[in-house]
Amino acid sequence: MQGTVDPNKAALNYHNEEVVAPAHEEHPDLRLFGLLVFLGAESMIFLGLFVAYLTFRAVYPSWPPEGTPERELVLPAINTVILIASSFIIHNADTAIKKNDVKGLRTWFSITAIMGAVFLMGQLYEYSKLEFGLTTNLYASTFYVLTGFHGLHVFLGVCLILAVLWRAQKAGHYSDHDHFGVEAAELYWHFVDVVWIVLFILLYLL
């Protein structure tokens, strides 16, 4: 059922109690295209927040404002490496499922989920060590809100990966020609990764 979306099926189900109705109007699977459009819109939120951040930075007399406690760079750098590496790891799952290797899919997705969880814990650990809070000053607020909003997306990405893992328990749910869920989770994960790279440059390196 995962492979093709059939808009009519829904209307059919509405009247036919039977869930399995013959797909009588085949059109190509549009879900990946839809997801890309969605991610395009999603990236506009980040773009808006990034530009807002850059404006605050440009308008503020000194950035970070004087008296703001220093941040360390090592932990976030390790976190960045973990997240970028996970993007390569998750791609193996895609290769695996295209060879009908569900076991490989499960392995690579599990590793990615663990790496995502480590990233999130690293982020929380960093928060706990910081000597400024959300409302300390504008600098602190932008830091927490931007990283937090991104962290929320990482969390959602981990949830997506776990959902795919859950479904992959059922034999035959994903196959070489029918694995939109895998592709969607992977695409989302890459998106989250790219956003982090920009965020890391903006918040830590600039």
Binding site: G40, A41, S43, M44, I45, G48, L49, A52
Partner: peptide, 9 residues
Amino acid sequence: LVGTPVLAG
């Protein structure tokens, strides 16, 4: 798609 997300931000 381009505008609404920025309002959300």
